[in-house]
Amino acid sequence: MTRDGRRLRGRSRRTGTPRGSGAQPAGTALRAVGLTRSYGRGESLLWAVDRVDLDVPAGQTLAVTGPSGCGKSTLLQLLGGLDRPTEGEVWLGGRRIDHLGERALAGLRCRSVGFVFQSFHLMDELTAAENVELPALLAGSSPRAARRRAAGLLDRVGLADRARHLPSELSGGQRQRVAIARALVNEPLVVLADEPTGNLDSAATRDILHLFDELRAAGQTLVMATHDERVAATADRVVSLRDGVPVDDTRLADDAGAGLGALLSWED
């Protein structure tokens, strides 16, 4: 199918941002303009992310959903500077990052973006506390400040008593909470979480969602890719991707159970 054929088929509804480059409006944490990532060439050319425009206001929790292969992971990697777009722009906290050099980009990723991955990506030979400290040290913190900050974060994610454990001594849910503490250690502008509950059971998923709820209350900007509708439902906003194209952009209410009474009818 042609590229435009897909877009038409996909009922393209652009995610409401003006086109063209330029500084992002105040209060925007993350912005994509015409963001495109293609792989291959000729007949086998594939657009994993196809001309995506997206504004994420500071403090927003955004879920990117869609079936496997819809481009949500690629989109997150582009937004966090882990991958480079074929076309288009990425702005992070008012700064364009897609054309930065590798060194500058690595520094920016370390200081301004917190990543959370499906399979945790902790260093196996480091303790929980050391895993959390590491990005702080890489960003230039003193060992003492890094230690203090890691201890505070491990306490915040409920793992103060596991600080000296190796990842192999922790459950999946605990490992992911360490990974979230690590993602927060440099007080990033944005946390990007790629299928953060993909390897977790429902109890551990609940823990992570409670933690994300606390982050949201604290004003942390968070973008997560998930194929789990219940995880997406905890976000402020859900963008659905199909074939790399946003096909829906829905705002969700956060009033717990306000309209739930309507689910039951009490007729005799």
């Binding site: 509708e229 997406a232 905890t234 829906d248 829905t250 209410a253 009033d255 717990a256 159970g257 689910l263």
Partner: peptide, 18 residues
């Protein structure tokens, strides 16, 4: 329908977490 169900699920899920 997806939007409607998603909004409903958001309400239920927030309540379920609470």
């Amino acid at each position: 329908r997806r939007r409607e169900l998603m909004r409903r699920l958001a309400e239920v899920q927030h309540a379920a977490l609470a």
